[in-house]
Nucleic acid binder design. Sequence first.
RNA 1: GGGCGUGUAGCUCAGUUGGUUAGAGCGCAUCCCUGAUAAGGAUGAGGUCCCAGAUUCGAGUUCUGGCACGCCCA
Length: 1167
Amino acid sequence: MPDQAAPFKAAPNSPKFSDLEEQILQFWQQNKIYQQSLERRQNAPSFVFYEGPPTANGMPHPGHCLTRTIKDVFPRYKTMRGFRCERKAGWDTHGLPVEVEVGKELGIHSKEEIEAYGIEPFIQKCQQSVWRYMQEWQRLTERLGFWVDLDEAYVTYHQSYVESVWWSLKNLFDRGLLYQGHKIVWWWAQGGTALSSGEVGQGYREVADPSVYVRFPLLDQPDRSLLVWTTTPWTLPSNMYAAVHPELEYSLVKQADSDQLLYIASSLVETIAARSKTELETVETCKGSDLLGLRYMPPFDGYYKTLGDATGALITPIGDRREEYFYWRVVEADFVTTDSGTGIVHQAAAFGEVDYDVYDREQRRFVEGERPELLCAIGPDGKFVEAVSDDLLGTWVKDADKALSRELKERGLMFLQEQYLHDYPFCWRADQDPLIQYPRRSWFIRTTRFRDLMLKNNSQIGWQPEHIRDGRFGNFLESNVDWALSRERFWGTPLPIWVCEETGRMDAIGSYDELLAKPGVQGTEVWQTAKAANPELVDDLRVHKPYIDAITYDSPFAEGKRMQRVSEVIDCWYDSGAMPFAQWGYPHQGKAQFEDQFPADFISEAIDQTRGWFYSQLAIATMLFGEGASISEEGSETNAADGTEYPVPFRNCIVLGLMLSQWWERTESDHQKTIVLDEAEAKEAAKSGGKFSKQVGKMSKSLRNYRSPEEIFQRYGADALRWYLLANQAPWNSTIYAEQTIKDSIPEFLLRLWNTYSFFTIYAEIDGFDPRTAGDADEQLSPKSLASSPSYRAAEQRNEIDRWILSELHHTIATVTERMDALDNYNACQAITTLLDGLSNWFVRRSRDRFWANDKQSQDKLDAYWTLYETLLELTKLAAPFTPFLADTIWQGLTEPFGKKTLSSVHLCDFPASDPSRIDNGLSDSMRLLREIASLGRAARAAEKLKVRLPLLEVTVILTDDTNLAWLQSHDALIREELNVKAVHYTTDGNQYVQYTVVPNFKRLGPKVGKQVPQVKQALASADGNQLLVQLQDNGHVVLELGEGSVQLDSDDIEVRLKAKDGWAAAQGQGCVVVLNTEVTDELQREGISKDVIRIVQNQRKAIDCGYTDRIAICVSPTGEEVEQAIEEHRQTICEETLADTLEFKTDEGDGANSEHGMVWVSKVSS
RNA sequence: GGGCGUGUAGCUCAGUUGGUUAGAGCGCAUCCCUGAUAAGGAUGAGGUCCCAGAUUCGAGUUCUGGCACGCCCA
């Protein structure tokens, strides 16, 4: 009977993990365990973690669980390892997605509609919308066990945050690094707004556009023309250049019935001739570079009339030529191909990004103040502003195509006109409106000045996986372009620049107070009025549109004039990139925190953040701190800040793969799709007709093709999900969310750990094992302090299997520590799994008898307890960062007898330290061999269909060498038991049973004999293995005669292998062969039968609900004499094993068990 | 169209500086155990390492070229 006063109580059998987790969650909250874990490390060295802010205006899905699990596991680990790891949460709150969400809610789309609705109520709605799914996010964060300071979270719309961002922008502005330029955007003319690439991508559809081939006559040789091609004739009036590829070959061709000569890329001559149904005869050829600089007459002379001969001074003169014409020259461009068109590309810089780049490059050739202007004949409404011909003024671009084409035809410039089918983007909100590429004034940060510095900083970052550094991220930095910072939107950090209404000169503002301190400030009452009318309004809104726009002040540049803010807000990526300092409100406040918490030791986000948060952080930190802080644009009024030395913003970064979903779907008769998330479910549902097909793809809100995190927690628990995410794959691979695998992580790890723990508590209760005998036990029950118990013996005095598992434990601790320090959670988990397997499947199994032994105080039994207890304690600490809930449940169970003397949570403990003196590699090797022998014996049995219950006379184990021979011999009892044999023989002389073969150790042999490897291999294979072995044993080496001389090989160069000879029941492994004596005597047969009977009876005991200690009566109706004799012979054993009072040969009433040996009835006699 | 990545057992995934017999878990099959018991364990089957070339004594691993998929950018 269990000891009533036992310190341990048996743990429940099959717990519902999600319920246990909820309890732990409550415990954590009530006892502020997270805060305690931080306080315990108050003066410890810091390990800095940055939380990349998620947006809380969408529901979280399983993909977010991966990010948050990875973000949790390393800080937890580092905290246990003795570091102070603060974890400030954060929320990304600005940006277009928020505006779109609010717009949907209000049923409005365009900027005009928003303006009509009112910017003030609109941004108020944005501010509220940001928190729409806040609760879900907080719940996810907590339920997953992601420890982070949600209460102290930084929020990008908060005034202090915005002011930090302003400070940084002012810094850049004052250093001349913030400038205005043009950006070519996809423009919705009717709506008056730019569209994001995502929005543009949604709107592509196939349309037929005009395809025109137009002649551009050369100025100096009017009979020669460039032939250019375009599908947007409306851009021709804004033509600036014609681009050729300098390396391509061009032909000057003559049209059959005309005097006209045309330049066309040589490889396209034939195609164009065919299309235009004219003969084109090549007159001469040249390279593209020969055409550079040629001037031509543009197809429309709207600009040409005034600018035709406009020139400017070159920065680098060409020869003695110091001046260059601004427009209508042949220029070079690498993007010119011969895939379509003519090989000469019409350049209208206003309407194409690559065209704009060419223009930009051209501009830089001229000295400042003498540069070509951007030619743009179209207004923001998509209509002609500069009259090409008077009747086009005010015409919508697409309507102008026809008129323009007609005119070109009339003037004889149109070489060919066709229709062209291609994909073209339309507005996703108004599908009749084609988008156009259009230049917008935009603010840029001169990040290109920092390219090399960013690359240098990048090289300092520990990327996980490594290829990110030189691959995706490195390449991205290499091709850096200036950061287009401004957005013509409403909900974002306002660009803190005020402009003089008179002079256009500008000023940047670094904080709200700085603004209020400006002379003659007006407009603050707009905010005050709003706040008075609605006291609920959060104060942070005062630094937002429209309130901030209302504030003006006296211009320092012009007497009596005002300074007014520019209208733009900034890219919200800048917000997130400013997080390292803005989270503290630096430098207006939080200086100490910033200096303490910069840079981060560790961050992690998914791969899609490469150009997002990873870049924005690196760029901003590079520009503001370290060497970068001393860079400023020439001629800027303010010199750069004195470079405070700060390195990269983060030292290590795990880049996570994307998580895909897997589901089963069926299309119903009404074209609706039925989606299930489970294969079993799909099979079940398919019974009602219609097969389901398996799908893999992105998680999609509209399809609902994934399980909500909340449901996963309910079904399987957070630990199961965490273990799946941490232990099943390297985190940077994109993975398929596999429901089944999560389910599997319960029996694979959680339940196995639980069962081992439960096994311990069951026996500890029965035996009253009391760890409190360790009088000096410390608060974390460290192995050293447990040694103070009088019943605790030093490991070297204990049973071998105790020493073995402790050796495995310390080996595992070393591995896990080493792997986790390298940010490798996957292999750390593998090591833990291996340890748990050893503990559960070998230590516990092999030690059952010791735990069941009668003498409660025998030293061997106590050794077993101490070993298991200590291993479980340390294993629990090892597992704590990975499965924090289960680890804490078990920790609390294991420490319960100590009451308040021990730490209340495993997460307050130190991570276990590996004690090298406990690692015994020799023992590990021997034990591995022993387990292999047992396994081989079972395999040999299985091959002969001799089940383990049938006893056999003997096994013979043949080894290649005698290293482990003595050790194994001393363990033959174990093998006898495992294999159910009467005797075990070990030998190295197995000629009778095995064939020896000698194989090369290629790893050593390769470098040694090089090209002779195949010959050596051949020679070894054809030689007699047994003879080679003799040679090796006698001389320590073997000599092989090859064609070109002899080779001497020592024992490290070759490996001896064994192969069982035919005719034996044998199984072979790496270094041994196990041979089974298959002779089954009648005696053995009967013993086997008796064991069968025991099993049948035990099954019946269970079937009739017997308790462990119930006594029974057995009746057997045997099939024959042999069975009867077997039972008679082993009557005593059978009765003992099954707690039977009587065993009779007769037929009984009721349900019996029918077996190969006859009917068996079992009935309960007493409880 | 460009960049980056991925492709290994039915499924989900590992695979070290190249070393010749490619692993794990699940699933499947066969079996064991029945005092951890709605658990636990063993053994086995299962592979053209996406394809084709190249380098090498030797390639899942390196190189080149394809194919498929994904992500990012045009």
